[in-house]
Amino acid sequence: MGTVAVVLVALVAALHAYILVLEMFLWDKAPGRKLSGFDAEMAVATKPLAANQGLYNGFLAAGLVWGLILGGDAGHDVQVFFTLCVVIAGVYGALTANRRILFAQALPGALALAAVLIAG
Rank of each mutant, 00 (worst) to 15 (best):
L11N: 03
F81N: 10
G2N: 13
G54D: 00
A51C: 12
A43I: 09
L107W: 14
D73G: 09
V80H: 08
G75T: 05
L49W: 15
G58W: 06
T3Y: 14
F38E: 05
M42L: 09
V86C: 03
V7T: 12
A61E: 02
Y56M: 09
V80Y: 11
K29Q: 05
T83M: 14
I101T: 01
A10G: 13
L55I: 15
P31K: 04
V80G: 01
V12R: 01
A119L: 10
L49G: 07
W66L: 06
G120S: 14
A115D: 05
L102K: 05
A51N: 11
L8I: 13
Y92R: 13
G63F: 09
W66E: 00
A106C: 13
V86A: 03
L11K: 04
A114G: 11
V116K: 07
F82K: 05
A106M: 13
F25G: 07
V4Q: 08
W27N: 00
C85Y: 07
T46N: 09
L113Y: 00
A112M: 06
A104D: 14
E41Y: 01
G93Q: 15
L95F: 11
L111T: 02
Q53R: 02
L35A: 04
L15P: 10
V116A: 03
T3A: 14
G32Q: 01
V12T: 11
M42N: 06
N52A: 12
I69Q: 05
G90K: 08
M24E: 04
P48Y: 14
A94P: 12
A50Y: 03
L35T: 01
Y18I: 07
M42K: 14
I88E: 03
V44Y: 11
G32M: 04
Q105N: 09
A106N: 12
G37K: 02
G93R: 14
L113F: 03
D28T: 09
V44G: 11
Y92K: 13
Y92D: 08
L35R: 04
K47S: 08
L11R: 00
T83R: 11
A115F: 04
G2V: 07
D73S: 13
D28P: 01
V86I: 04
H16F: 06
A45E: 14
Q105G: 00
V78R: 08
A43H: 00
R100F: 11
G72T: 08
A62D: 02
L84Q: 09
G67E: 02
V4M: 11
F59Q: 04
A5H: 10
A17E: 04
G37V: 04
V44D: 15
E41Q: 04
T46M: 14
V86Q: 00
Y18M: 08
A43M: 05
I118P: 09
L26H: 08
A10E: 12
L107Y: 14
A61R: 00
A94Q: 12
F103K: 09
